[in-house]
C-alpha cells in the first residue's frame, strides 16, 4: 500500500538523526522535571485544582512532553518540507503527482509521528516514571481510547500546520505564521498549563478550539476523565476538527493550485 510505504520512508528518514533524538529526549526530560515540580507545588497549594490530584498533574506533564514532538506542537514535521518546497517552487512537482498532496504529506507526517512517539515520547516517559509517580490508564477503555486519540491529535495538528505552511503560497515565507501558530498551539493545547485550570469563559473557549485536541484531550482520556459516551464524545471532538481542518486544507490547496497553474508560481 502506497501510503504505508510513504509513512515507513518518513519513519526511517527521521530515525537517521540519532544524536538529535538523544538530545531531544534529554531536553524533554529536563523540561518534564521542571514542570513536575512546578505542578507539585501548585497542587500543594490547592490539592483539587482543576479536578486533578498530584499524580494526575505529574502524569499530565510527562504525557505532554511525550506528545510535544509527536504532534509537532511547535511546528516542524513534514509540513516544514512543504513550506520549503513552496518557497523553492518544487511544489509544482507535488501538484502534478497522481497522489493527492494532502494525503502524501499526511502519510509522511504519520510516519514521522510514529517515530517521535516511540523515541521522544516513550523515553522521557520512562524517565518521568522513574523519578515521579505516574498514573497508568485505569481501564482498558482509557488505554484503547488514548491509542485512538493520539493519531487523531496528529491529524488535527497536521491540518493546522498544513494551513500555516500553505500561507507560503501567498507570503513566500511561512516562518512568521509558523512562529505565531506555534505560540498559540503551546498556549491553547494545554501544553503551557492544563486547560482545566483556565478560568470561566477562557476555559470554555480553550477547550472548544482545535488545539485542545492535540494535548488536553488525549491526556484526559489517559487520565480516565472521559468514560463511556463521554469518551466517544471526546474522540468525536478530535475527529470533527480533523475533518474540518482537512477540508480547509483541501480548499486552500485548490486555490493555491489554481494560482500556481495560472501564474506559474
Amino acid at each position: 500500500m502506497l501510503y504505508v510505504a510513504i509513512a515507513t520512508r518518513a519513519f526511517r528518514r527521521y530515525s537517521t538523526y540519532r544524536a538529535a533524538t538523544l538530545a531531544g529526549v534529554f531536553t524533554n526530560s529536563v523540561f518534564g522535571v521542571i514542570y513536575s515540580f512546578a505542578y507539585l507545588a501548585l497542587w500543594d497549594a490547592n490539592p483539587t485544582a482543576g479536578g486533578y490530584d498530584k499524580v494526575d498533574a505529574v502524569t499530565y506533564v510527562w504525557l505532554g512532553q511525550a506528545l510535544l514532538m509527536t504532534v509537532a506542537l511547535w511546528g516542524g514535521g513534514t509540513t516544514d518540507d512543504l513550506a520549503e518546497r513552496i518557497r523553492s517552487g518544487d511544489v509544482a512537482i507535488d501538484l502534478y503527482r497522481p497522489v493527492g498532496v494532502i494525503q502524501w504529506y499526511l502519510a509522511a507526517d504519520l510516519g514521522r509521528a510514529a517515530y517521535h512517539l516511540l523515541t521522544r515520547g516513550l523515553a522521557p516517559t520512562v524517565v518521568g516514571a522513574v523519578l515521579f509517580q505516574i498514573a497508568m490508564p485505569d481501564s482498558p477503555a482509557a488505554a484503547l481510547g488514548f491509542l485512538v486519540s493520539v493519531p487523531l491529535a496528529v491529524v488535527v495538528s497536521f491540518g493546522l500546520r498544513f494551513l500555516v505552511a500553505s500561507t507560503a503560497f501567498w507570503l513566500l515565507d511561512a516562518t512568521g505564521a509558523r512562529t505565531l501558530s506555534g505560540a498559540l498551539a503551546i498556549f491553547f493545547s494545554g501544553m503551557a498549563l492544563p486547560l482545566v485550570l483556565f478560568p470561566g469563559w477562557l476555559g470554555i473557549l480553550a477547550e472548544s478550539l482545535p488545539w485542545s485536541a492535540m494535548i488536553q484531550v488525549p491526556n484526559d482520556i489517559w487520565l480516565g476523565r472521559h468514560t463511556g459516551v463521554d469518551l466517544l464524545g471526546a474522540l468525536a471532538f478530535q475527529a470533527g476538527w480533523a475533518v474540518v481542518l482537512l477540508a480547509a486544507c483541501w480548499l486552500v490547496l485548490a486555490r493555491a493550485t489554481r494560482k500556481v497553474v495560472v501564474q506559474g508560481g
Binding site: 512546578a38 497549594a45 485544582a49 498549563l193 485550570l197
Partner: peptide, 11 residues
C-alpha cells in the same frame, strides 16, 4: 498568571 486563579501562593 492563570495558575494564580487557583492558588494564592506558589512555593
Amino acid at each position: 498568571a492563570i495558575m494564580f486563579s487557583s492558588i494564592d501562593q506558589l512555593g
